[in-house]
Design a protein around this nucleic acid. Sequence first.
DNA 1: CCTACCGATCGGTAGG
DNA 2: CCTACCGATCGGTAGG
Lengths: 190, 190
Amino acid sequence: MKTLPRKDQIRLKAQVLFREKGYVASSMRDIADTLGIEAASLYNHISSKEEILQDICFSMAESFFVAIEPISTEDIAPDEKLKKAITAHIGVIAANSDASAVFLHEWRHLGNPSLADFKLMRRRYEKIFAAMLEDGIRTKAFRVVDVALTVRTLLSAMNWTYEWYNPKGKVDPTAMSVHICKLMLDGLRS
Amino acid sequence: MKTLPRKDQIRLKAQVLFREKGYVASSMRDIADTLGIEAASLYNHISSKEEILQDICFSMAESFFVAIEPISTEDIAPDEKLKKAITAHIGVIAANSDASAVFLHEWRHLGNPSLADFKLMRRRYEKIFAAMLEDGIRTKAFRVVDVALTVRTLLSAMNWTYEWYNPKGKVDPTAMSVHICKLMLDGLRS
DNA sequence: CCTACCGATCGGTAGG
DNA sequence: CCTACCGATCGGTAGG
């Protein structure tokens, strides 16, 4: 039961506020209140409000890459690989639902150069999924689809799931993953 | 080439700003600047900043209902009905991409009672899609799925499309609809 | 970590 | 539709 470093406590509380009210509408005083200190005291641990947002966004990006990259290089069937990737992605979201919400919605309030870096990382991440789809198309495991469009649809289908881990988990991550895998691979038709 | 009423001009300019910077980060002075007037002058046409957000959110909600409700009562096969509904929904987004972005992301900055009304409308809208899925499951056109979960996945798969009608339309709405219909009904597997 | 405070900006009003 | 202005609040700093 070790107490976290103050900086981590700040990020954790800020995540919840940023998710609930949005980054811009959350003030430093709001964050300080949740910690029982004055707003000015926050600046002993962080240098700016935006630094908190940066920490959240980039550490989440890191988590997604760490989860997905090893899978992308595995030598398994395309449909199995995609399933593992979907499951891993949703697993990261489920384990960090507040941070995921912030990562997904508040990144645009980053200033440059962080904003440009963030967009590049996102493109890199999309390309990993694109490569998995292209592999599947080439080996005839998947039908021919517009890859860019399918990647975006797939990511959107996964990225709303943080909402279900809101206050208390309604559905477990495994069930979500199984559902989305099946829907994306085989569709709704019986 | 009739000039729009000032109030509509305000909403149109605000849509673009709210989409780009978010509702909270967009000031009344920002909006006034795009119209070449002073911030104080806006209050001759609207009563508050939030009223603009309300107008955008509720007029979009209205557009979605107007598009989807007639389809929901048609007497056609479940898969055809779902296709028409997806096409109609994406059509509304494509025709109002700025307002759609605001509708989808900024609604939470509504105050009560608007916020509560908005959430109710959204639930009503989800139920229309849920009923279409349940019909399909009952008649064996669709396989048995978790309906609530599938509705959310489907809506998410459709609702990112406003991004592709950003500055200039990259893809036409018809292509987007065909793609998403096919993916949702038959999946990725060949 | 606090007190005390800064300049900037916010949504909005009064009065014309 | 403008000038002039309001109180509130913002992110952040100085100094201890």
